[in-house]
């Protein structure tokens, strides 16, 4: 009998520290599956973020580096430039990529670094207790916007993927969601395309994943998936941006 589904070689067989209903475990697994399918486990060098996924390197079974908060794409640039034969990707949250690391993100993209970015957008800072992120929706309550995000004082949700798509150095940007089997299949395809782009030397590719954070959304895991589908995608529409 043919075995069509098994534990990915690139993912260690461990329980994760993530909360019930969190999207990180799913995103880790999808990436691990794609790395296996592409046969690149021994070529991959991943950069873990600062945030809930800070110990992603404990779960993935390939070479990984840490990076200071926001600096993942600077670290990725250093690694990829001295080892162009390796497959280098960053895994970053919204605060990491679109607030404290905005400079590194925009300029790595503008240089057209041939690296891949997996951008987990859950609209909050999870690790530190659910503060407002650059991607927090208007009226969304967080620990630092107790009355809900107010554009007058906190500005608007930052659509950094759309911003990055404007840059000529950026070759592929797609927003996907981890809210349903259909969307997860699409997410996996996007992950694969972004890594294949790098293997083929196409250039900077980014996949944004709308990812549930039940704990800091104050919702059940099921209600969180519904919130992505019914509310979050209105601000962050899915599909290929570039």
């Amino acid at each position: 009998m043919e075995k069509i589904y098994s534990h990915p070689r690139s993912l260690r067989d461990l329980s994760t520290h993530y909360c019930p209903g969190c999207g990180h475990g799913l995103a880790h697994r999808l990436i691990a599956e794609v790395v296996d399918e592409l046969g690149i486990r021994e070529r991959v060098i991943a950069i873990a973020p600062v945030g809930c996924a800070v110990i992603a390197y404990d779960y993935w079974d390939f070479d990984c580096s840490e990076a200071a908060h926001g600096r993942a794409l600077a670290v990725a640039t250093g690694i990829k430039r001295v080892r162009p034969q390796n497959i280098v990707f960053t895994y970053q949250g919204d605060g990491d990529l679109a607030a404290i690391g905005t400079t590194e993100t925009i300029h790595a993209a503008n240089r057209g670094e041939n690296v891949t970015v997996f951008f987990i957008n859950n609209a909050v800072y999870g690790m530190t207790g659910g503060q407002m992120a650059p991607t927090t929706l208007l009226n969304q309550k967080t620990s630092t916007t107790p009355e809900g995000r107010n554009a007058q004082f906190q500005g608007y949700p930052l659509k950094i993927s759309e911003m990055l798509a404007l840059l000529p150095g950026v070759k592929y940007v797609e927003r996907v969601a981890l809210d349903s089997p259909q969307d997860i299949i699409k997410a996996k395809k996007a992950i694969k395309k972004a890594l294949v782009n790098q293997m083929e030397g196409v250039g900077f590719s980014l996949v944004e994943m709308l990812s549930p954070c039940p704990t800091y959304w104050g919702l059940s895991p099921k209600a969180s998936l519904d919130w992505i589908k019914n509310t979050m995608v209105k601000e962050f529409p899915l599909g290929v941006i570039k």
Binding site: I45, I47, S65, A67, A68, R71, A74, V75, A76, T77, G78, I79, K80, R81, V82, R83, N86, T103, E104, I106, H107, R111
Partner: peptide, 19 residues
């Protein structure tokens, strides 16, 4: 690489050294 910032430069060095 002419980096976009001092922070980026030192973190690129982190990456290159790590590799």
């Amino acid at each position: 690489i002419q980096a976009e910032a001092e922070l980026a430069a030192i973190n690129m060095v982190f990456g290159a050294a790590a590799a």
